[in-house]
């Protein structure tokens, strides 16, 4: 799932110059790592909801932890899908 998720990130966020191999599963997605911002977080949340039918509720969930890397995001989606 990690690679599928990386491709989703690239497509949803128009990261034209980045390939799946460039994204480290455990590196931070926001700020220092991949350098995504808050609008990217919203866009990614929408893309995940569309593809995996998993809604990440910013009010209830620990979004900072969930969005911290590809690995944490994939784990959350897997657990939410049950």
């Amino acid at each position: 799932m990690e690679n599928e998720l990386k491709q989703l990130i690239i497509d949803a966020l128009d990261l034209e110059d980045i390939s799946v191999a460039d994204i480290d599963s455990d590196a931070p997605l926001f700020n220092d790592g991949l350098g995504l911002d808050s609008i990217d977080a919203l866009e990614l949340g929408l893309a995940i909801r569309k593809k995996y039918h998993v809604k990440i509720d910013a009010e209830k969930e620990d979004v900072v932890k969930i969005f911290s890397s590809v690995t944490t995001l994939a784990n959350y989606i897997k657990s939410a899908q049950g």
Binding site: L13, I39, D40, L42, E43, L46, R49, K50
Partner: peptide, 9 residues
């Protein structure tokens, strides 16, 4: 469909 937050911004 849902609108893109990026497109809105």
């Amino acid at each position: 469909d849902e609108i893109s937050p990026t497109a809105f911004s």
